[in-house]
């Protein structure tokens, strides 16, 4: 990873940490919410694989009927 060496890790770390917090809170909320198995699997895929926007989409749309 040549690219990573050019970045200052001390600057990047808080961003990674915040992203992790966002994903984790969305995952916890998703697991604790009542919904069908298929829906939950779909949301978990969205939360994990779509960076930044995935958790936001879940919180805005996925919890509508909760």
């Amino acid at each position: 990873m040549e690219l990573l060496d050019t970045f200052n890790m001390q600057l990047l770390l808080p961003l990674l940490l915040l992203d992790f917090v966002l994903k984790l809170s969305a995952l916890i909320a998703c697991v604790r919410q009542e919904m069908t198995k298929e829906k939950r699997a779909l949301w978990i895929i969205i939360i994990v694989f779509i960076n930044f926007l995935g958790p936001i989409l879940y919180f805005l749309i996925g919890r509508r009927n909760a």
Binding site: L15, L22, S25, A26, F52, P55, A66
Partner: peptide, 16 residues
Amino acid sequence: SYRLIWLPVVFLILGI
């Protein structure tokens, strides 16, 4: 509803 957690985090990520 987790808003108190994710909204500040979103603003922090945008700001950083």
